[in-house]
């Protein structure tokens, strides 16, 4: 359950920021999570709710924005959206690192983010 580690890290960072700036009430935290990160959003929200209890973040909402994956190919210089594994019969679309243009190994250039974008607070 790395969602717990991530939630703890969010709460730690935001509370540190709040204490430094004498903020008593956090209303919302907006996260950026890359498409290539195996983060389970529901679990993350659950952990967040539990950890924020009785802190300046209690009852604040956690908004999650997904950052689309992007790749670049060293072989054919393709840059853009990745190729998805269409016929994998999985419950969710699977991103691959196969170049959509030439089929060789591409590198990810976007989609591994996990960051706090903004926080909304009351002063």
């Amino acid at each position: 359950m790395h969602e717990f580690s991530i939630a703890s890290s969010i709460v730690e960072s935001v509370l540190e920021f709040a204490a430094k700036n004498k903020i008593e009430k956090i209303l919302e935290v907006r996260l950026l999570v890359g498409e290539l990160m195996a983060v389970e959003w529901e679990q993350l929200r659950f952990c967040y709710g539990a950890i924020t209890r009785e802190t300046a973040m209690e009852n604040s909402s956690l908004e999650i924005e997904q950052v689309e994956a992007a790749v670049s190919c060293p072989y054919c210089s393709y840059r853009g959206r990745p190729k998805y594994w269409e016929d994998a019969l999985a419950a969710f679309p699977i991103v691959t690192l196969q170049c959509p243009q030439c089929g060789m190994a591409a590198e990810s250039t976007q989609g591994k983010e996990c960051a706090i974008k903004t926080i909304r607070y009351m002063a």
Partner: peptide, 23 residues
């Protein structure tokens, strides 16, 4: 989970943190 704090909009602030959690 709905927040029901009375506050006029000028008391609510947004701040960009751009703080990476994996860094």
């Amino acid at each position: 989970m709905i927040q029901t704090i009375e506050a006029s909009p000028d008391e609510i602030y947004d701040i960009e943190l751009e703080h990476s959690l994996l860094e």
